[in-house]
């Protein structure tokens, strides 16, 4: 794929894994500003490993990752925190934080050594509270929130960090359908309205097909990447799961249990 100026994230020939054991090889894709991209694939195929590698929580095994035109490894830790934010599956360590306090922590890369918030910081926090409908919950403690509310808070924190790339690991797990759609639509708006590049792993393939601009399928071999409709036409989803169990219905863009 051609490297253009517009690319926020460029992945070339990436190998990921732990130590000597590679989990997935030859991953190639580029993401531009304002794109929402879902990563799908069966359990254990390396979705989380990919995210952890892109978030620099573990080293890559080979290939190149470039973020805003600069190699990921070259970023200093504070410089990286200004261009890349994450939402992880792990819960915040302290649930005694209020919503506002937790979101404010997203401003840490920009604050002074004491963490004093400037006017800009406060505006960002307010914008994040507004965008994720958290105004009324701002003084609630995190342990008082439902799963869906807490997930919104964590994404709002990432938005407050104001980075060009946001990585999310399974942001829709443990949520009911309504809240799954809610959080994904909010992510879509964040990407399109504020020109953020958002990459998330998910098992909600039918929702990802409807909402994402791009989808990366981790299948252990080719790792197809592209527009959801093109991927459907090229029958890439058909091969995702063993066909004797589930089959992909191209008309509805969803999976059916094989009779």
């Amino acid at each position: 794929m051609a490297k253009t100026e517009k690319n926020i994230l460029s992945i070339a020939n990436l190998s990921i894994g732990y130590g000597n054991k590679s989990v997935a090889n030859n991953i190639d894709f580029d993401l531009e500003a304002g794109m929402l991209c879902g990563v799908v694939g069966i359990n254990g195929i390396g979705k989380s490993t990919l995210l952890r590698t892109l978030g620099r929580f573990q080293p890559k095994l080979g290939g190149a990752i470039s973020l805003n035109g600069q190699s990921l490894e070259k970023y200093g830790s504070n410089a990286l925190s200004k261009v890349l934010s994450v939402v992880l599956t792990e819960q915040p360590a302290s649930k005694n934080l209020t919503v506002q306090e937790l979101i404010a922590l997203g401003r840490q890369p920009y604050t002074n050594w004491l963490g004093t918030l400037t006017q800009t910081d406060k505006q960002q926090i307010e914008a994040s509270l507004d965008a994720f409908l958290l105004n009324e919950l701002r003084n609630s403690k995190c342990h008082e929130l439902s799963d869906g509310q807490l997930q919104r808070v964590l994404v709002a924190r990432a938005m407050a960090q104001d980075t060009s790339l946001i990585l999310l690991d399974e942001p829709t797990t443990h949520l009911d359908l309504y809240h799954k759609v809610q959080i994904l639509k909010m992510l879509q708006r964040l990407a399109h309205e504020r020109q953020k590049t958002i990459l998330f792993t998910t098992h909600e393939i039918d929702l990802a097909i409807q909402l994402c601009d791009r989808i990366l399928i981790l299948d252990g071999k080719e790792h197809p990447f592209g527009d959801p409709c093109e991927l459907i036409e090229q029958k890439h989803f058909d091969r995702l799961f063993p066909s004797e169990m589930v089959q992909f219905d191209a008309k509805t863009g969803s999976f059916k249990v094989s009779k």
Binding site: S81, L84, G106, P109
Partner: peptide, 12 residues
């Protein structure tokens, strides 16, 4: 307070 991974992603 957010956990070590989050702290790392905040530049700590």
């Amino acid at each position: 307070l957010l956990g070590e991974h989050y702290a790392q992603s905040l530049g700590v």
